[in-house]
Every structure is written in structure tokens, then in C-alpha cells.
């Protein structure tokens, strides 16, 4: 167990290192000069060069990279030239908004996806099952930004019952969270449907019935218990995707989370903030994957170290 943990942790660190390297390279390759953006178009060549020296941008790339790694270990991403102050603090400041959005999206996904999947399984082959299936595929096929805009048009502009952008009210969460959840909601519904049908056909279900247990107990205790395991393990992955997908959704709904902050920062060549945001998203993604793997142990007694 300890050995496995250590191995997984080492993998996670390696992945993070890769993410840091890619982000570093990509941000340096993007055209555009931070010094020019900071100083404006009136700046002279000397002023620009001095600014670049000051920011360490004229050092060789490898030197920049080495210095950079050291800084990241200390969680020092540098200051944001645009917002002033620590870049990492600026990102952390926006984190609660993203977490709230992702949390609500997860709530939508679970509260709708799970029952829909169970319902479809219980009505296999009937109209309800096909309806869930179409809904699921449609939800996965539509691009999120388009769904977001359509929802705004319908619920905000036309019906005027939900706010289109963050206005501080809890209602403002509904549209972005639903938009974020939609593709995963359908995906989860299908996963639950297929998992439930598979479990219903297993021998232990017949055994449970042979004991004279009611259908309710057979389903809620015996079948759902086994359907739940894969669901809980994908929830971590879904949450990781939510935090990553929030980049687009937050932009559509002007949601003040790390996604919109990241896009603003990239547009303004505010490397420090952009990088802090991307790294934080990567940490979430990798961390949640790690948690999922560990959850597997807790939930499925058959998963032992020999089987991983």
C-alpha cells in the first residue's frame, strides 16, 4: 500500500513537472512582448530592453527555465504586472468562484445524471430509455459555448427569469453550472444506465431474489452498491474536467473565476498570472485523479495491490 502510494505520488509529481515545462515553453513561444505591453507604444528601444532585463526575459531560455522551476517550487510565480501584487494570490482570489461553479455543476450532474441513468435502465428499450439516450448524446455533441449562449438567450433575454452573468445572486449560478454539467450529465446517465443493466444481469441478483428480498432491497442495496463504485470513481475525473472546462464557460457568462482570469492574463501577456492559473488547474486535475485511484481501494474490496 505504502509503495503504491509513493509510486502514484511520484507519477503525479512527474506529470506536474511536465505540465510546468509545457506551460513555460508555450507562454514564451506566444508572440507578443510583455515589456511592450507594460510600457506602451511610446517606449523607446532602450526602455524596452531595460524592462526585459528587469523581468529576466533577456536571459537564455534555459536559465529562465531553471530559475522558474525554483520559483514554482516556492509557489512564487512572480508579480502580476497588470493587477499588481502576487500572481498566485490573484489566482487564489478567483479560485472560490470556480470551485463554486464546478461544485454546482457536479451537483447537477449527479442529481440529474444518476436518476436519469437508473430510470433509463429500468425502462430499457422503452421510450424513456431512448429519450435519455438522445438527450445524452445531444448534450455531449453540442459545443458548450453555444449551449451557454442559447441558454442566455432563452432564460435571460426572452423569459428573463435567470441572470446571464454573475450578479452576486445564487441564481446566477444556474445557467453556467448547467452548461458546464450538460455533456457530463448525459455521459454519466449512460454510464449509470449501462452499469445498472450489467449488474442486474449478474448472478448475485438472482441469489438476492432467492433469499426472498424485495425488489426494492435487491435494487437499492445489491445492484446500486455495485453501480456506484464506477460512478464515484469518475466523479473525480468529471470534477477535474469541470475546472478545466470552466475556462470557456466562465468567459461566456463573465464568471469571475480562474478561467476568465487566465484568458484575460494570456491576452495581456501577464505570464505570471496565466501560469499560476494553468498550473493550479493542472494540480487539480492530477490531484483529483490521484484521489480517484485511492477511492477505488476504499470502494471496491476486490481491488487489491495485486490487481493494480
Amino acid at each position: 500500500m505504502i509503495g503504491y502510494l509513493v509510486r502514484r505520488l511520484a507519477q503525479a509529481v512527474l506529470l506536474l513537472f511536465g505540465a510546468v515545462t509545457i506551460v513555460f515553453l508555450v507562454l514564451r513561444v506566444i508572440p507578443g512582448d510583455p515589456a511592450a505591453l507594460i510600457l506602451g507604444s511610446q517606449a523607446t528601444a532602450q526602455e524596452l530592453a531595460a524592462k526585459r532585463d528587469e523581468m529576466g526575459l533577456s536571459d537564455p531560455l534555459l536559465a529562465q527555465y531553471a530559475r522558474h522551476l525554483g520559483e514554482i517550487v516556492r509557489l512564487d510565480f512572480g508579480d502580476s504586472w497588470r493587477l499588481g501584487g502576487d500572481a498566485f494570490a490573484a489566482v487564489l482570489d478567483r479560485l472560490p468562484a470556480t470551485i463554486t461553479l464546478a461544485g454546482f455543476a457536479l451537483l447537477f450532474t449527479l442529481a440529474l445524471g444518476f436518476p436519469l441513468g437508473v430510470y433509463a435502465a429500468r425502462h430499457k428499450g422503452k421510450l424513456a430509455d431512448r429519450a435519455v439516450s438522445y438527450f445524452s448524446l445531444t448534450g455531449q455533441a453540442l459545443p458548450a459555448f453555444w449551449v451557454g449562449i442559447m441558454l442566455v438567450l432563452i432564460f435571460s433575454r426572452t423569459l428573463n427569469i435567470l441572470p446571464a452573468t454573475a450578479d452576486g445572486s445564487a441564481l446566477a449560478l444556474v445557467l453556467p453550472a448547467f452548461t458546464l454539467a450538460l455533456p457530463f450529465l448525459g455521459w454519466l446517465a449512460r454510464l449509470v444506465r449501462n452499469g445498472t443493466l450489467e449488474e442486474l444481469g449478474r448472478d448475485y441478483v438472482r441469489t438476492a431474489r432467492s433469499k426472498g428480498l424485495s425488489e426494492r432491497v435487491v435494487f437499492n442495496i445489491h445492484v446500486l452498491r455495485n453501480t456506484l463504485t464506477p460512478v464515484i470513481t469518475v466523479l473525480g475525473l468529471i470534477l477535474g474536467n469541470f475546472i478545466a472546462d470552466a475556462v470557456i464557460i466562465e468567459q461566456v457568462f463573465a464568471w469571475p473565476g480562474i478561467g476568465s482570469l487566465m484568458i484575460e492574463s494570456i491576452q495581456n501577456r501577464d505570464y505570471a498570472v496565466a501560469e499560476a492559473a494553468i498550473i493550479l488547474i493542472a494540480v487539480f486535475y492530477i490531484g483529483l485523479n490521484l484521489v480517484v485511484d485511492l477511492l477505488y481501494f476504499a470502494l471496491d474490496p476486490r481491488v487489491t495491490l495485486e490487481t493494480v
Binding site: R202, D203, Y204, R206, T207, A208, I221, H222, R225, N226, T229, L299, D300, P301, R302
Partner: peptide, 8 residues
């Protein structure tokens, strides 16, 4: 083995 519920 298959007749018993693996998760209980």
C-alpha cells in the same frame, strides 16, 4: 463466487 455480491 458470482452468486455472492462482491461488494458486501
Amino acid at each position: 463466487l458470482s452468486a455472492l455480491n462482491p461488494s458486501l
